[in-house]
């Protein structure tokens, strides 16, 4: 799967390129906006990773140009600015996600994965299945091994997000942003508290745990090997 990476700082670029390579991606790298527009419009990319601030044509302008040229690939903004207007401008330009510098590499990779595997908007999924766990989006019901599981609204959203990204690492901040729409780091363990309740319902009393904690980064739901 090929990605486009625009980053002007050489050390960061090299580091991200290697990390993406280790994660199994092929990367087109560029250091300025002009090259990014050229590369982005001349071949297909699964995800556009754009540094918001590069000299000359900046990431925002690059994304606008590519969107205008009909490039629909999901875009991830890397930015050192997290003011309200930076966020709104980024989303208005057509960004799908943004990551504020500095960030943990594992967080970066997790988000790229999430964007790369994102289902096309026109594909209609009504049931998510991981091993014997089944989540019905229409009936808003969950069953495991045929046995119904009662979930509260937030637990359901949490499980839905995990299952939509089954097999991938989902970080705490991804959960905060996508399940609760919190774009900040609370001082309390919101995720842990909700997750322990969800696990108690989904995994307790079954032979194998489906939800796993990935130390230092987040969670993953997976069919046991």
């Amino acid at each position: 799967m090929k990605l486009l990476l625009l980053e002007d700082d050489e050390a960061t670029r090299t580091h991200l390129e290697r990390a993406l390579g280790e994660a199994g991606f092929v990367v087109d790298v560029c250091a300025n906006g002009r090259d990014a527009i050229f590369l982005g419009s001349s071949s297909e990319h699964a995800v556009l990773i754009l540094d918001r601030m590069v000299p000359g044509v900046d990431g925002l302008a690059v994304l606008k140009a590519l969107r205008a040229a009909g490039i629909r690939a999901p875009a991830l903004f890397l930015t050192a600015m997290d003011g309200v207007h930076d966020r709104v401008e980024g989303l208005n330009a057509g960004a799908d996600d943004y990551l504020i510098k500095p960030f943990a590499t594992i967080e970066f990779i997790a988000r790229v994965h999430a964007l790369a595997r994102r289902q096309p908007e026109n594909s209609i999924v009504t049931t998510l299945i991981v091993a014997d766990l089944e989540l019905d989006l229409l009936k808003r019901s969950v069953r495991r091994g045929g046995r119904p599981i009662q979930l509260q609204a937030q637990e359901f959203k949490l499980l839905e997000y995990l299952m939509r990204h089954a097999g991938e690492i989902v970080t705490r901040s991804m959960l905060l942003e996508n399940v609760w729409h919190f774009h900040f780091e609370p001082q309390t363990n919101i995720i842990e508290s909700h997750m322990s309740r969800l696990r108690a319902k989904v995994d307790r009393g079954f032979d194998q745990d489906l939800i796993r904690t990935i130390r230092g980064s987040g969670y993953r739901i997976d069919a046991p090997a």
């Binding site: 003011g83 207007h85 609760w180 919101i190």
Partner: peptide, 24 residues
């Protein structure tokens, strides 16, 4: 950021924030 303000349901938002914190 003031220029990007929009009307929002604060009751709803407070409800969400409280719900997020209840397990904690």
């Amino acid at each position: 950021g003031r220029q990007y303000f929009e009307m929002l349901d604060l009751s709803d938002l407070l409800g969400q924030v409280v719900a997020a914190h209840q397990p904690v």
